[in-house]
Design a protein around this nucleic acid. Structure first.
Length: 415
DNA sequence: TCTGGGGTCCTAGGACCC
DNA sequence: TCTGGGGTCCTAGGACCC
């Protein structure tokens, strides 16, 4: 176990909103939100009014009548996020990117070049500020969990270093919801037994936590409360699933409604899976009803798939099964497909004849091969002329897009 | 009053095998 | 016929994170 604090957690502040204020100086110092129907991100000035990400636009306007909505420059978010992470990479190769605007790094091996971890953190913050014009907060500690908490405490635009000698003193005075893994439900459950701070959590008997939260969560939280975090920096982590979803308002639970939507979702997912040669064996479907209750249904196949049509047909079957189980639900509000058990296909892709990868056991394999070949052709055309250049007939038309496609792409994980 | 979209991990029960 | 135990996989649902 390391005895010095060399883990950094760097987190760009109110990232999308800060980029908008960077691009348009007239927005600086003002409450703004990115998005239209829903708030995708809010500036600190807007957060001061209680505006939060995910909030409906109408509610944000009620809280903050003078708020300015901007539609968003998603390409710029990607570019600036990448650039900020690269700044960290100039100090150490041990960088674990968590999302578009957030990363861990271990600087243990580069202090002889660049100074103490605190000095490196300061240098990162200065460079991101001067070279990109963006505020970034950094936490420095001995463990990932504590570094992450430190960066949250540092916000906005700050630096917090937790010296190994002061770890528990720092940690135990903070509220439990700052801990990784404590969301609204767990916070409420802990509050019911009088646990509000991490210090109180640390003093709670293990059996009590495990009874309250289950064995895994109880043990994990107890460990984190004493700053025992075994996690290491992982520089490359492969995705375990790929999915897509679409909120469709309130529509009747009928074939005419869910078929085109499922096809569109399958198209998006299939394209990604094929691009990385990572077909998957398990298909999961989620249907959310008008009352916001939802039901899932999944199937695990003998062989992995990535062809759009096959994926769509399986998803349709699953949705029909869900609806059959909920005959009283006449209205659906969201459809989702996810593919998991992804293959690690890298080199086999080159060895297997095209088509044998998909559906070797499905009756009518030749059809499966033809479908995959058709997908490959479409993928190629789209690669040259853009996504909308070609598609599956009616599917290309009139899919309700509640958020811009560019926003969806930002959230996609590298497969 | 009615939150969008892309992910990860855990749980609990059941099937199935040794 | 009843008894015990361990392990793996699958499915449905939830909590959580960004």
């Amino acid at each position: 176990m390391a005895t010095t604090a060399t883990i950094l957690h760097a987190d760009l502040d109110a990232f999308y909103a800060s980029v908008e204020q960077l691009l348009d100086p007239s927005l600086r110092g003002k409450p703004i939100a990115v998005g239209s129907g829903v708030v995708l991100a809010a500036s600190y000035e807007a957060k001061a009014f209680g505006v939060r990400g995910g909030m409906p636009g109408r509610q944000a306007r009620e809280l903050c009548p003078q708020i300015t909505f901007v539609s968003g420059h998603f390409g710029e978010y990607q570019r600036l996020g990448d650039t900020a992470i690269k700044v960290i990479g100039d100090f150490t190769p041990l960088v674990e990117r968590i999302s578009i605007d957030e990363a861990f790094a271990d600087v243990a091996g580069c202090t002889h070049l660049f100074g103490s971890p605190a000095e490196i953190a300061g240098a990162i913050r200065r460079r991101v500020r001067t070279e990109l014009g963006l505020p970034i907060s950094v936490g420095v500690a001995r463990t990932k969990h504590l570094a992450k908490i430190a960066s949250q405490v540092a916000k906005p635009d700050g630096l917090v270093v937790v010296d190994p000698g002061t770890e528990l003193e720092f940690l135990h005075r903070l509220p439990v919801e700052l801990m990784w893994g404590v969301g609204p439900v767990t916070k409420t459950r802990l509050a019911e037994i009088g646990v509000l701070t991490i210090g109180q959590l640390a003093q709670t008997p293990g059996w009590s936590l495990e009874r309250l939260l289950g064995p895994a969560a109880g043990e994990k939280l107890a460990a984190l409360a004493w700053n025992r975090d075994p996690r290491e920096i992982k520089t490359h982590r492969r995705a375990r699933s790929a999915g897509a979803q679409s909120a469709i308002g309130r529509k009747p639970a009928e074939e005419d409604v869910f078929r085109p939507t499922l096809f569109h979702l399958a198209d998006r997912i299939g394209t990604r899976l094929r691009a990385k040669s990572r077909p998957g064996r398990t298909v999961t479907v989620r249907v959310r009803f008008a009352n916001l209750n939802s039901a899932t249904r999944s199937v695990t196949l003998d062989a992995p798939i990535s062809a759009t049509v096959i994926l769509a047909e399986i998803a349709e079957d699953l949705v029909r099964a869900v609806l059959a189980e909920h005959p009283n639900e006449k209205t659906i509000s969201l459809l989702a497909i996810s593919v998991s058990h992804l293959e690690e296909r890298w080199d086999l892709e080159l060895e297997l004849p095209l088509g044998l990868q998909d559906e070797p056991r499905r009756p009518g394999t030749k059809i499966g091969m033809a479908r995959l070949a058709a997908d490959r052709a479409i993928d190629k055309i789209r690669g040259r002329f853009g996504w909308d250049a070609i598609g599956y007939g009616s599917v290309a038309l009139d899919i309700s897009r509640s958020v811009p496609d560019e926003f969806r792409e930002l959230a996609e994980k590298e497969l």
